[in-house]
Design a protein around this nucleic acid. Sequence first.
DNA 1: GCTTGACCTTGTAGTAGCTACAGGGTCCAT
DNA 2: ATGGACCCTGTAGCTACTACAAGGTCAAGC
Lengths: 130, 130
Amino acid sequence: MRIGELAKATGTKAETIRYYEREGVLPAADRTDSNYRDYTDGHLATLTFVRRARELGFSMSQVRELLALSDHDDKPCENVDQLVQRQLVEVKRKIADLSAMRDELAQLLRSCQSDRIGECRIVESLGRRN
Amino acid sequence: MRIGELAKATGTKAETIRYYEREGVLPAADRTDSNYRDYTDGHLATLTFVRRARELGFSMSQVRELLALSDHDDKPCENVDQLVQRQLVEVKRKIADLSAMRDELAQLLRSCQSDRIGECRIVESLGRRN
DNA sequence: GCTTGACCTTGTAGTAGCTACAGGGTCCAT
DNA sequence: ATGGACCCTGTAGCTACTACAAGGTCAAGC
């Protein structure tokens, strides 16, 4: 299949697919006579895997690790488990950070009762004294 | 005050302060005879404002907007309000996205009962068939 | 007076993960 | 043979810093 078809099938831009190839998360495809990339179903599966992992917030290097691990059918999957575990912790941390932001922003909004900047609690709360 | 002092006072690296100057979120300071930047308390207040806004997730261009707005004491602060509102919505959206990620990651972890990659639900769920 | 070390200066390049060209080649239908 | 849709490579841009390199300044200590 050509790059455009693979792109459509996975919701990925062709440029991104080529980028993934350069970054080593998608093996280079064979080329046609006219030098077009020719992808297999294996490529489709791998790209789906990569996109899914990226959607779950794994970094490119983590994706590389996951791919390397998933290539060894017979090895224990405790390492995969660990990567997922670590990512889960990271995501939870981000949620906590954002929740704090959300609360502070909501607090800011509640604090502003005035209508002129000069008396605006928001501007004041952020630390500006003119 | 010199850049190092301002840096320490605000928990910002000197390089970041110079970057903020280039980006127009912190006015250029006067220079001493030896060409060192010489900051005022006004700079300290502005930098505190900028850092706080950045911590709350505002982008640099939003920070620029907030600064521009906060310069007009007599104008209504409804625009400030709107910016905060919009940022709150955005933060909530990110929290929702991350919560979905968290749930999926947790689900992945629960799904993996096997110990070999070949049978690993995690690898399978991500879309890889070898 | 000279050195040492901490500070400051500019300018440039790197980070992550794409995305968007420019400038060119290929292929198929009309 | 011409148009349009696709493909190719290579490079530059995006955000918000961060990290140098190569050099200038200044106060303290000998």
